Amino acid sequence: MNHSTEHPLHETLLHDALHAHVRESGGAAGAGLAGLADEALRVARRRQRLARAGVGLVAAALVTTAWVAAADSAPPRAHVVQPATGDGTGKATPISLLPVTSSVEHACPEGSGGYTEPATATQPASCVHADRARGMTDVRVASAKAEKSTADGTWQVEVTLGPADRTRFAALTGSLAEAPLPRNEFAIIIDGELWGTPYVASAITGGRFEIVGAHVGDLTGATAHDLALRLDPGR
């Protein structure tokens, strides 16, 4: 018997021939033959449906097996853990840019309101105080990206301010440019921590500056990318 998915032509022709014979001859015997023909056709059609379903199941199984094989044969991918962004709500972490008012060589006493610049192998810790009233507080930057410095190969985060903050930043840095050290510096504060105190030689009108850490070379590739994502989760 043909088990293909085509119509069961043999059973259909037999069924039609028997019914034609019944119509011509009549009688109980003819009716019985017609009943047998109907049952044979039902069986053939059931077999056809099962065959089609079987083909579908085999095809689905083949597709699934092929997909799993492709996945298994793919080269292993490194497990990448993305650092947390912003404040956990998908919003960018704000940054404050504050004029430095003083810097003394010791860690800040608790409750002094200053920001401690940690010690290095060549210099002691410093306590930096800044003026929040004159500074720019809780600024959300337009963009931030981690990159290596072309000058010395150290990691940094390049920050770009939006148009309104760019104007304010130009005015702030312009007012610091003529002051003596350390009052020609501005403190970069993120989440209450000091991330640098760059000095200003003239007004910064492009709205762009770099974060290198409290000291040049503090940032690694991982910490630079982490900081960039915190400041600019939309990247």
Rank of each mutant, 00 (worst) to 15 (best):
T5S: 12
T5Q: 14
H10N: 12
L13A: 15
L14V: 11
D16F: 07
A20L: 04
A20V: 00
E24V: 00
S25C: 01
G26N: 00
G27D: 00
A34I: 03
G35E: 13
L36F: 13
Q48E: 13
Q48A: 08
L50N: 10
L50M: 13
A51K: 07
A59V: 15
A60D: 01
L62E: 01
W67H: 06
V68R: 05
A69T: 15
A71G: 14
H79F: 11
V80I: 15
V80K: 05
V80P: 01
A84S: 07
T85D: 08
A92F: 04
T93G: 03
T93M: 13
P94N: 09
I95P: 04
S96D: 08
L97R: 05
L97F: 02
L97I: 07
L98R: 14
S102R: 12
H106W: 02
C108E: 07
P109L: 04
S112V: 15
Y115R: 07
E117W: 01
A121F: 05
A121G: 14
A130V: 09
R140Y: 03
S143D: 13
W155S: 03
E158W: 02
G162K: 15
A164M: 05
F169M: 09
F169V: 09
A171T: 14
L172C: 12
L172Q: 10
T173C: 10
T173F: 06
L176K: 12
L181V: 08
P182H: 06
P182L: 10
P182N: 04
R183T: 15
E185V: 05
F186K: 08
F186N: 07
F186A: 10
I189C: 08
I189H: 09
D191N: 15
L194D: 04
W195A: 07
W195L: 12
G196W: 06
A203F: 10
A203P: 05
F209A: 03
F209E: 02
E210V: 10
L219C: 06
L219R: 03
T223E: 10
A228R: 08
L231P: 06
D232Y: 15
D232H: 15
P233D: 11
R235S: 06
